[in-house]
Structures are given as structure tokens and as C-alpha cells.
Write a protein that binds this DNA or RNA. Structure first.
Lengths: 262, 262
DNA sequence: CCAGGTGCTTTACGTTGTAAACACGGTGCT
DNA sequence: AGCACCGTGTTTACAACGTAAAGCACCTGG
């Protein structure tokens, strides 16, 4: 445990965060000239700033200096726009230098980097993440938050190359995505609660304390419960998951070794 | 592995499922007489039948044989209604005879029963569950899907009584809720995909296969990937989680035993 | 008998997503 | 040159939404 203020490496700073959504247009997009990518980028920006509920075709249009109907040239409708937002946001993974598309340093390293990449996205776009989590994926094999065939392919290949059986690789994928989804969804929702509600200064607090007196254990553990350990917990759970996968791998390769020498 | 068709014990059948939402009114509610509970119950029913997106005040009113504005007598507004829906659905836990409010058979049994209870709810109300998962909890200590102080209190007490330290109990709660959330959210969304999209008979399939040819591993593993192993995976992951918590408990109690004998 | 409340309906307003028609600049063809 | 066309954005329009504000019909206690 570092003594200096714990510095969460996945926090949005320096790394570009939402600025990384649109590095640049094809050659140069000064201002005029709408474009699907520009619309989607603006939508992400807008949600980041004003929340998902505030996103409206008209408001997004205004944000781009255009009437709402102009957007329909580039986006078939609102649903599709939201899908595009989700896609745009996870595509940031491709631009993340700390996430490798090939598992060149072993599968553990690959999973670690990928998980932190996704976490960085979740923390950079807390208002978008629930959307990533809940929108049903296009293909049934894809699971949020890793919704692209390309990532799934890379993921499976990495594990298979490391000696995982087909079944084990698929099981690992499922465990890994559930893990990411659960942890990150709770983390962003927890984070959101700290700022979002226009706190009634005393009425709500009074209510809460009244409820608390009927629940002595929660009352006693309240400092522990409300402490934010997300970074450490994420790290530890991820490590545990990877260790567990490692044991699965050992067993399965031990079995196959036994088979081949018998 | 049973040879007979695997029978998922958490599947909605017999158990009452959504019929268990409203066992009965105070003494007797034949038909007339609206009521907050009736409104909420109807909302759950409506969402179960037509999906979350189809729920509007007007339609819910019609479903109850009443104009939309009548609902505002019992519900302050739509947001609050959705909160009420979430609460209503998790309150089914209290009526579940297989879920105990006291950990009378040990904490492992308690966690097992609770997890399956929540899973049963998720499967009984797949359209409601994403709402449970994403709606921010009232108090910051509460995490979906276990959103009530009462459950949290019981949970913590059970672990503390079993010898968990305060920190370990809280950590266990966090791990447990992330696990439930991730697994169940993915399970219901996977399930939803099987029925929900009004499948275009061939265009979509052609698209998918085209994409697939560029991803040979996914293509090869497709049967594995699209196989539904949710029940077994849930069971196994839950077991693993509980074992892990068991090891945490052993370590911590070994440490405290050492301390007390030195 | 009647004042008041309770429960629901009516009416109304502003906002949403989106279809349809329109306006307008640039480009290419004759 | 003129003219048809096309890509882009605007205008107008409509049904459906959440909800505020009245209105109406009963019941109930004085």
C-alpha cells in the first residue's frame, strides 16, 4: 500500500480520455461538413457532459449547430445512434497504446491490459457505460462490454495459443466478460451517486439515519461500506480470475500430457 | 451430468414466477379499487409481457382500465414508478421459501440460496432486470441487485457471525454483488436475444456469416459460443466465489487464532 | 341537505422522434 | 449559357409522450 495518495492508473487524466474519441478527420475536418463519425462523436461528448437522459435529437442537433432533422442524413434513427455511440466508445480500445491486439507477452498480460483498457473507458464515460452494458449485442456470441468480433477473435486466439482447450477458452471468455461487466457497472454507478443527485441538504440524510438505526451492522460498518476501494478491488479480483484461469489451463494441459504419454 | 434433459431449477415454472408478485390485497381486492401495490404490480406484469420500452403511463392506465392521469394519484411520476417496479420485483425475495432471511444453515448455504433466489427473479422478469441493474441505488452502500438495507444487514451479519472480519465481510459483499450483477445481466440479455428481434429471415444471417469468415476461430467455436451453459456456469462460478471467500475466512481466523495464543 | 373529500376523467401544454416536403448551393451535360 | 440533378440542411407537420390543472361524480359525516 503506497503511502502517497493512491493514484488510480485508470483514472481519466492525461491519457486523452474523451478527447481521444476523434483524433482527426480523414485529412482535415475544420468545422463544416457533418459526418457520421462527427455526429457520433458529438453524441458521446454530449452524453459525457449532460448525461444520457438529456440526449435528444434536437439538442444534439443544436450542439452541432444544426437542426435535428439534419442528423437523419447520417443516422437512421435514435436507436441506431445509441448503438453507434456504444461502438464509438469501445473503439477507443483500438487507440489505446496500453492495450495490445496481439498477446505478445502472454495471455495473462493480454487479459490484464484489456481489462484495464475497458476500465479506463468506463471511467472516462461513466454516463455511456450503462448503455454499453445493457444494449443487447448484435450477435449472440458477443457479450458486453467487449462487443466486437475482432476482440473476441483475439481473445480466443490468445488463450488457445496458450494451450487452453476450446471449451476452456470459451468458458474463460464468459467468466471474463461477466467479471468486467459486473465490476465496472457497479463502479461507475457508485461513482455517479457521489455527484449526480442534487442533494437535498438534510431531509434525505435524516431519512437515511433513521433507517440506519434499525440496521446496527450497516450503521457500524458504514465507513467501510462507503469507502471507495474500487481500484484495488478491481485489481485483486482480476488477478484472482486470471489465477483461476491459470489453474484451469494447468489441469487441462496436465491431462493432455498424461494422455499423450500413456 | 444428468442424462435427462438438464432441468434448470431456477427456471420460471410452478414457483409462481410473476404470479407471486401480488399474493393478495390487504383483506380482499376483487377488482375495483386502485392502489399503489396494484399499480406497481400491473407495471411489472406489463413490462414482463410487452417489454420495458412499451411501458407508458397511458398504456399502463389502459391495462388497468383507467386513464393515465389516474395513476398519478398513487405514483408521483414515471421515474418513481420505475423505482417502485424495481422494489416490487426484488421484494419477491421475501416471499421465496428457498431463500432464508437468517443464515441458519451456515453462510455458504445462505449465499447459495440468496444467489439462486436473485437468479430466479432475473429469469422470471428478464425485461425488468436491466432496470434493477442500472438504476442507481438510493444509498451508496446498497448495490444492485440486492438493493435493500434489510438484505445487506442480513448478509453482513451472516458473514460476521461466521467469523469474517469487518473488512472481509464488506469485501465479500462487493464481490458477491458484482458477481450476481455481471452473470445475471449477461444471462438475461443472452436469453432476450433468442426471441426479441423480429428476425429478418436471411439478410442478417448473410451479414453474420460474411463477418464470420474473417474470424476463423469464432467461426470454428461458434457452436460452443452460442451454447447456453448459463445454469452450469452460474453454479460453478458461485461455488468458486464461495470457496474463495471460505479461504479468506480461514486465513483471517487462523491469523486471529495465532494472535490469541501467542 | 349539503360541504367536503376521494377517485377518476377531460382538457391542455410543451417536448419528443420522425415522415414529408421544401430550399438552395454546387456540378456536369448539352 | 442554361438546365437538370444531387447532396445537404430547413421547415412544417403529426402522433405519442409525461404531466399540470380543472372538472365531474360519487360517498360520507355533520
Amino acid at each position: 500500500m503506497d503511502d502517497e495518495r493512491e493514484h488510480d492508473p485508470d483514472s481519466p487524466e492525461g491519457r486523452g480520455a474523451s478527447a481521444a474519441v476523434l483524433p482527426a478527420g480523414p485529412p482535415d475536418t475544420g468545422r463544416r461538413g457533418l459526418d457520421r463519425r462527427r455526429v457520433l462523436g458529438a453524441a458521446v461528448e454530449y452524453i459525457d457532459q449532460h448525461g444520457l437522459g438529456a440526449l435528444t435529437m434536437r439538442r444534439l442537433g443544436a450542439h452541432l449547430g444544426v437542426e435535428a432533422m439534419a442528423l437523419y442524413r447520417y443516422v437512421p434513427g435514435r436507436e441506431n445512434l445509441l448503438d453507434g455511440v456504444v461502438e464509438t466508445v469501445i473503439d477507443e480500445l483500438y487507440g489505446d497504446p496500453d492495450v495490445h491486439m496481439q498477446a505478445q507477452h502472454g495471455w495473462q498480460d493480454f487479459l490484464q491490459r484489456l481489462a484495464h483498457g475497458v476500465r479506463r473507458i468506463a471511467l472516462a464515460h461513466p454516463e455511456v457505460f450503462p448503455l454499453i452494458a445493457t444494449r443487447p449485442p448484435a450477435a449472440p456470441w458477443l457479450r458486453p462490454p467487449l462487443r466486437s468480433l475482432r476482440w473476441l477473435e483475439t481473445f480466443l486466439d490468445a488463450l488457445l495459443a496458450a494451450g487452453f482447450s476450446d471449451e476452456a477458452a470459451v468458458a474463460a471468455y464468459r467468466a471474463y466478460s461477466s467479471f468486467l461487466l459486473g465490476h465496472l457497472l457497479l463502479e461507475v454507478s457508485h461513482r455517479g451517486v457521489k455527484i449526480s443527485p442534487e442533494d437535498e441538504p438534510e431531509g434525505g440524510a435524516a431519512d437515511a439515519t433513521a433507517d440506519l438505526e434499525q440496521h446496527p451492522t450497516i450503521d457500524r460498518l458504514e465507513p467501510l461500506l462507503s469507502r471507495d476501494e474500487s481500484a484495488a478491488e478491481f485489481e485483486e479480483s482480476l488477478e484472482t480470475l486470471i489465477e483461476r484461469l491459470g489453474r484451469v489451463l494447468e489441469e487441462s494441459s496436465a491431462r493432455s500430457a498424461r494422455r499423450s504419454t500413456s
